[in-house]
Simulated assay, not measured.
Amino acid sequence: MSRTGPDRGALSAPLPEVASWGTDPYADALRNGHGPLFLRRTDGWLLPLDVERWCAVADAADLSALSRCEGPVLDIGCGPGRLVAALAARGHRALGIDVSEAAVTRTLRLGGAALHRSVFEPLPGEGRWGTVLLVDGNVGIGGDPRHLLHRTAELLAPGGLLVAETAPQDIDERVLVQLDDGRAAGSGPAAADPFPWARLGTPALLRYARPHGLHPADQWDADGRSFVSLRRDRTVRNTSQSPDPRNSTAVISSQFPRNTSRDSPLYGS
């Protein structure tokens, strides 16, 4: 899971989510492979974070999403890297990004490719990804679904696929939260700074996605988790480019196996 701020107009400014998701409760949970870890709302309500599942191998629900992936895959908020590793083991060209150094380190240790970067920073292969993943609650990144989905559409190739996990309820919530390890005040690390987050059910996600040329392709449930895939319009021209093409070339050429199929957006590139 990852988080990032809603103002894309100041990419050169420090990103607040680096401080939040780099704090000890999250980093320690990933290093230890278990929680407890929560997102705490300002009213005290706690959302448990499933660190043990994130740090395990991809399960049946994960595989139901990964089986739908097409072409090169970008996993936004890759966490400790189980999905990137599973995709690589299946021959996909996959890259994870996360604002947590601990998450990126663990992904690399699993043999996956990962960058310590926010989704709103310049990224390799913008406009050429066959599939983008927003799993494990990452549709909440930044607390602004419209902004996140706009950015996701920029990253996808025309006709590319967004595979997202949604809340099982019909919910559309934007809140301020803090990372919380469940320990009593004074017994653990200092409290993390609050940051914006969102929780979306499938209906809300579909509403926000449509104006950005993302249209429903499939919906399914697996092991109590809800997923949706959306396809980007093939006729929408993506003018976003990474300002550092040398970096894009280095990542795409050197970190991914060269097994791109003819139907991939990167075939022959």
Score class of each variant (00 low, 15 high):
residue 1 M to H: 00
residue 1 M to I: 00
residue 6 P to C: 01
residue 8 R to I: 14
residue 12 S to K: 13
residue 16 P to H: 01
residue 19 A to T: 00
residue 20 S to W: 06
residue 22 G to P: 15
residue 31 R to V: 10
residue 31 R to I: 08
residue 35 G to I: 04
residue 35 G to F: 10
residue 39 L to V: 03
residue 40 R to N: 04
residue 43 D to T: 09
residue 43 D to Q: 09
residue 43 D to Y: 08
residue 49 L to T: 00
residue 52 E to F: 06
residue 54 W to V: 00
residue 58 A to K: 01
residue 59 D to P: 12
residue 62 D to Q: 02
residue 63 L to A: 02
residue 64 S to W: 06
residue 66 L to G: 14
residue 68 R to F: 10
residue 68 R to H: 13
residue 72 P to D: 05
residue 74 L to R: 03
residue 77 G to D: 00
residue 78 C to H: 04
residue 80 P to G: 14
residue 82 R to C: 06
residue 86 A to P: 12
residue 93 R to F: 09
residue 95 L to N: 00
residue 101 E to F: 07
residue 103 A to P: 07
residue 105 T to Y: 11
residue 106 R to E: 14
residue 111 G to V: 12
residue 127 G to C: 11
residue 131 T to E: 02
residue 132 V to W: 01
residue 134 L to V: 04
residue 148 L to K: 06
residue 148 L to C: 11
residue 149 L to G: 06
residue 150 H to Q: 15
residue 151 R to P: 15
residue 152 T to D: 04
residue 156 L to F: 12
residue 157 A to G: 03
residue 157 A to R: 06
residue 160 G to M: 08
residue 161 L to G: 00
residue 161 L to N: 00
residue 162 L to Q: 05
residue 176 L to G: 10
residue 184 A to E: 15
residue 186 G to S: 05
residue 189 P to I: 07
residue 191 A to F: 11
residue 193 D to T: 07
residue 197 W to A: 15
residue 201 G to F: 03
residue 203 P to S: 11
residue 206 L to E: 12
residue 208 Y to R: 07
residue 219 Q to Y: 12
residue 223 D to T: 11
residue 223 D to C: 09
residue 225 R to K: 09
residue 225 R to P: 08
residue 229 S to Y: 13
residue 231 R to C: 02
residue 231 R to K: 05
residue 232 R to T: 00
residue 236 V to L: 15
residue 238 N to E: 12
residue 249 T to P: 08
residue 249 T to N: 10
residue 250 A to G: 09
residue 258 R to F: 12
residue 259 N to A: 15
residue 262 R to M: 08
residue 267 Y to I: 09
